[in-house]
Deep mutational scan, measured.
Amino acid sequence: KELVLALYDYQEKSPREVTMKKGDILTLLNSTNKDWWKVEVNGRQGAVPAAYVKKL
């Protein structure tokens, strides 16, 4: 499985998103959308802005 690093804090704004903190390591589930990537963090799945994460 592919991992990404959170470059910034992000507070979810809808139920389809997830909150992450700078430095979090997230499991990347889907990166086909260039703006929003689906990730899993702390057992929750949701979208985060692609510009806020970097593939490891």
Score class of each variant (00 low, 15 high):
residue 54 K to P: 03
residue 30 N to H: 09
residue 13 K to R: 14
residue 37 W to P: 02
residue 22 K to L: 06
residue 33 N to D: 14
residue 29 L to G: 01
residue 31 S to F: 06
residue 46 G to D: 01
residue 56 L to F: 10
residue 19 T to C: 07
residue 29 L to M: 08
residue 15 P to L: 09
residue 26 L to V: 07
residue 15 P to D: 13
residue 15 P to A: 12
residue 10 Y to F: 08
residue 43 G to R: 03
residue 47 A to S: 14
residue 8 Y to V: 11
residue 32 T to D: 15
residue 25 I to C: 08
residue 47 A to H: 15
residue 44 R to L: 07
residue 10 Y to V: 02
residue 9 D to K: 02
residue 34 K to I: 10
residue 21 K to W: 09
residue 43 G to K: 04
residue 6 A to T: 03
residue 32 T to S: 14
residue 15 P to C: 13
residue 50 A to S: 12
residue 2 E to W: 13
residue 24 D to F: 05
residue 14 S to D: 11
residue 46 G to R: 04
residue 20 M to H: 01
residue 22 K to P: 03
residue 34 K to G: 10
residue 26 L to Y: 11
residue 55 K to F: 11
residue 9 D to H: 06
residue 40 E to V: 08
residue 34 K to R: 12
residue 3 L to V: 09
residue 35 D to R: 13
residue 42 N to Q: 09
residue 13 K to N: 10
residue 45 Q to K: 11
residue 15 P to V: 10
residue 4 V to M: 04
residue 17 E to P: 05
residue 8 Y to G: 05
residue 16 R to T: 14
residue 50 A to P: 06
residue 21 K to H: 11
residue 44 R to T: 07
residue 2 E to G: 10
residue 30 N to R: 06
residue 40 E to T: 06
residue 2 E to H: 12
residue 19 T to K: 04
residue 24 D to T: 07
residue 44 R to I: 09
residue 27 T to R: 11
residue 33 N to K: 08
residue 49 P to T: 02
residue 33 N to H: 12
residue 19 T to D: 03
residue 15 P to G: 10
residue 19 T to Y: 04
residue 6 A to N: 00
residue 43 G to S: 06
residue 4 V to D: 00
residue 9 D to Q: 03
residue 42 N to H: 09
residue 25 I to A: 02
residue 25 I to L: 09
residue 13 K to Y: 05
residue 39 V to T: 01
residue 53 V to H: 01
residue 23 G to Q: 02
residue 56 L to Q: 05
residue 45 Q to Y: 10
residue 56 L to M: 10
residue 11 Q to D: 13
residue 8 Y to F: 14
residue 55 K to D: 05
residue 3 L to A: 06
residue 12 E to C: 14
residue 26 L to I: 08
residue 53 V to C: 14
residue 37 W to E: 01
residue 27 T to W: 12
residue 32 T to E: 14
residue 23 G to N: 06
residue 52 Y to W: 07
residue 34 K to Q: 12
residue 41 V to D: 03
residue 6 A to D: 01
residue 14 S to F: 07
residue 42 N to I: 03
residue 30 N to M: 08
residue 38 K to R: 13
residue 23 G to H: 05
residue 13 K to I: 07
residue 2 E to S: 12
residue 17 E to V: 05
residue 31 S to R: 10
residue 10 Y to M: 00
residue 36 W to P: 00
residue 11 Q to P: 06
residue 31 S to Q: 12
residue 5 L to E: 11
residue 41 V to S: 14
residue 27 T to V: 15
residue 37 W to L: 05
residue 29 L to H: 06
residue 54 K to H: 10
residue 45 Q to V: 15
residue 12 E to W: 06
residue 10 Y to D: 01
residue 13 K to A: 11
residue 45 Q to A: 12
residue 27 T to S: 08
residue 14 S to M: 07
residue 45 Q to M: 10
residue 12 E to F: 07
residue 52 Y to R: 05
residue 31 S to V: 08
residue 22 K to C: 09
residue 23 G to L: 02
residue 21 K to V: 10
residue 16 R to L: 15
residue 26 L to Q: 00
residue 48 V to K: 01
residue 31 S to M: 11
residue 6 A to V: 10
residue 40 E to C: 12
residue 54 K to I: 14
residue 6 A to C: 14
residue 4 V to L: 11
residue 43 G to Y: 04
residue 8 Y to R: 14
residue 38 K to L: 15
residue 23 G to E: 02
residue 1 K to P: 13
residue 26 L to N: 00
residue 54 K to R: 13
residue 22 K to S: 07
